[in-house]
């Protein structure tokens, strides 16, 4: 099991793996430790999400894919 991601340390441009096995690029980080602004790269459960920007909740961020 991956370590809990410390959202304060996530930088724009990094890729995160999300709940539902989706991946997304971090667009910006409000640094509240709770939310990230991301753009979906893959989304097996909902392919229409790919390319869309959204806010993702900390508990939905499973791991950093790239550093």
């Amino acid at each position: 099991m991956a370590d809990i991601v410390n959202l304060f340390e996530v930088e724009p441009g990094q890729t995160v793996r999300l709940h539902g096995n989706a991946t997304a690029e971090v667009v910006s980080n409000p640094r509240d430790g709770v939310w990230l602004f991301v753009r979906y790269l893959t989304s097996p459960d909902d392919p229409d999400q790919v390319g869309a920007e959204d806010m993702v909740f900390a508990q939905d961020v499973l791991e950093l894919v790239t550093d």
Binding site: S28, P30, D32, V34, W35, F37, M55, F57, A58
Partner: peptide
């Protein structure tokens, strides 16, 4: 800040007050 985030359950609000998260 871009958003105001409640630390209790995580609801977050844009700077125009809208509930966004």
């Amino acid at each position: 800040t871009p958003i105001f985030t409640c630390p209790y359950h995580g609801w977050s609000f844009a700077t125009d007050g809208a509930l966004v998260g």
